[in-house]
Design a protein around this nucleic acid. Structure first.
Lengths: 137, 137
DNA sequence: TGTAATTCCTATTAAATCGATAGGATTAAT
DNA sequence: ATTAATCCTATCGATTTAATAGGAATTACA
């Protein structure tokens, strides 16, 4: 299940990508427009800034802006920052690999084999969609 | 993230599919062989029986057996019973649809569009894999 | 220079979910 | 009868999630 954090984060990024102007976009505006609790959105924006997707301007007339072009922001990267691993089990995760407690040999594991396929397909979708796609060109 | 419940359930089904004999397979045996807490596995087997994947025999020499052929058990169906919706957001779920609180119009929602793609790809994998595939033919 | 508006930061909380356990009731083979 | 298995309900502790609280720091502008 996608967390609200990720969902809100994606919506906020999309909102910023769509907003044409060169003035930064404010949390309050996004929050109202997208029905996202403002304080919650604050913490999400902070995460997105710290992980290099957004830049910010403080103080009056401050706000957030994209650092890269929407076409260069892959959904797989955003998801990893907000949601964590893309794989459904740590033992098939490329970026967050962990061995399973219960599996003596993961190459023998039926779940492992299935989850690799799921991961590859999900990854394909998330890598081929960028923020530009989400923002509708 | 795949729950332990689902993971254990899939492993147990695979184990039963692999066990050739015509005597039912016992929880204790699966539990030991697959390193699954026995009491936890009990409740999972119960779920799988109630949802029509397994039959059971009670009492001494009892146990569980498959009701359908492995090739007829699609992973998508097992996942829905153990894990719940396959979609990452309820608003793109085929079997567990729910409207989002925050979206006035889901056709305008960028997350919605992305998650439909993820769902379709995941569904493809889970529908084309059966228990026969997991059990390695 | 001071006031308003904004991001920044840390901590806390309430509720839900997850993984597991407990304890026995029921059923069947020997 | 006894043993061994499934069946059933309830509970528990830990973790995670979604959200809130409260203020510090920074900036624009009158």
């Amino acid at each position: 299940m996608l967390s609200k954090k990720t969902k809100y984060g994606l919506k906020a990024l999309t909102y910023i990508a769509k907003s044409e102007g060169d003035t930064p976009v404010q949390i309050g505006e996004i929050s109202k427009s997208e029905n996202i609790p403002q304080k919650f959105l604050e913490s999400i924006m902070l995460t997105l800034r710290k992980s290099g997707f957004l830049g910010s301007k403080k103080g009056k007339h401050g706000g957030y802006y994209l650092i890269k072009k929407p076409a260069e922001i892959k959904m797989s990267d955003v998801m990893r920052v907000l949601e964590g691993p893309i794989a459904m089990v740590p033992c098939v995760s490329l970026n967050f690999y962990e061995k399973c407690d219960d599996c003596p040999d993961e190459h023998e594991c039926s779940v492992h084999k299935l989850m690799i396929q799921v991961r590859d397909n999900t990854l394909y979708v998330l890598r081929s969609n960028t923020l530009e796609d989400l923002a509708g060109k």
